[in-house]
Design a protein around this nucleic acid. Structure first.
Lengths: 129, 129, 129, 129
DNA sequence: GTGGTCTAGACCACA
DNA sequence: GTGGTCTAGACCACG
């Protein structure tokens, strides 16, 4: 699991870490039960402050994506499987859809784009190791 | 066009205004050429500062959604149709898709959700009750 | 002499009128001594307020490009010919040059662009009237 | 990098700051990667409000001349080299050229002036400090 | 009467 | 300690 952080981005670094972790978990790159690097290790590897990594982990934990292991380590949790997207993401989706529509994209093209996003880097899912 | 602002949200107010305007334009609630409320009027109506509305309008103008003529007044621009969505939206879409996948949605359910977002409140335009 | 005004431009309308008049005079399209349309006529033709045209004419008069004729009409003045650009324009030129340089344009390309601007629509100079 | 602001000028202060920054970058006085003064520092030094400097920085950022990382601080961006100048500058150039022509400058004199503007204070770059 | 600009403060997220 | 955001006023250019 390699993180690519953009220090010049408007997205906070802790959010970038969190997002890429979620992406990794969804893609199967990070399997449930797998141990995540320690805060210290990840901070050192990425060249960011420990507080930043800590914040990302706290957010992921709060969202149920990761959990604290038996001896204090951090491991990937099993998929929660709510069955539906939280309203917050649905709202974001509506805005993106509105922008797509105004950019001239028709419904089918947008749906195709969404399917592509869904299948992003999850092709060789059980096969890539 | 009625705005619902959440003062407690993490999303900046000017961003909320901008997002809802984009939604309104995409839904046809705000037609091209239609006059938007003045900065002062909207500020008063929403209970926020002029500068905040100004920032939202400036953002929309920069994105090409509205134009501010020399005659005073701000109007909805005709959809230029920029072609494709910037890569930036694809990234946001991938993250939402990842969350949906982890929430237990399969590809078809997600695609259906995306289509729904695309058609959000743009069906029975004169019929919405 | 046909004016093309952009109501959505950031440039004030009176400034657009003034600029295009200067362009027309420099191109020879408006010859010294030639009579300009009355404020009322130009305002009606362009669909702008008389005050706006008045402001443009006042500016041109103050800069010496036009003068008041014997019976109150407005006519193109003879070229003042200071021999040098006012410092104000030199400053604007330096800024444009800086932007060009940062955009990757080398000195020769920029000089060529400037020559092109100088000769803009002045080809058939003494031949079109 | 010393800024000279004219409070009585018609040019907005934030525009003056932006212009002089562009000049400074083009002249090499501000090198890529160099750290710019903080908003507060520059505001204090120039005797203007924070928001004014903020607006200038926002404009420069939007134009790609500077970047504001997540680490705080604002730095000069490496010149991307956008290719050619936008049409917008060509229009401004044509007007300046028209004024030069009416001031009595011939094409060569104008081209020389343009070259001078291009090389404005970027000669003895490594020789003055 | 419109938007553009500016001021002199303030609080907060981020790192 | 940085920039981001917001407030509650104000003056001015433009049309």
């Amino acid at each position: 699991m390699l993180l690519r952080l953009d220090m010049a981005s408007q997205t906070p670094i802790y959010r970038q870490i969190r997002d890429q972790m979620v992406l990794g978990i969804a893609a199967g790159e990070l399997a449930p039960g797998e141990k995540l690097p320690t805060i210290r290790a990840l901070a050192g590897q990425c060249g960011v402050n420990m507080m930043t990594v800590n914040k990302a982990y706290a957010l992921l934990r709060q969202e149920g994506y990761i959990t604290t292991g038996r001896r204090g380590g951090t491991v990937v949790a099993g998929s929660p499987g709510f069955g539906a997207l939280p309203e917050r993401y649905a709202a974001a989706l509506r805005i993106i859809a509105a922008e797509a529509r105004l950019a001239g994209m028709d419904e089918d093209a947008f749906a195709a784009l969404c399917r592509e996003a869904y299948n992003y880097n999850s092709k060789g899912d059980g096969d890539d190791g």
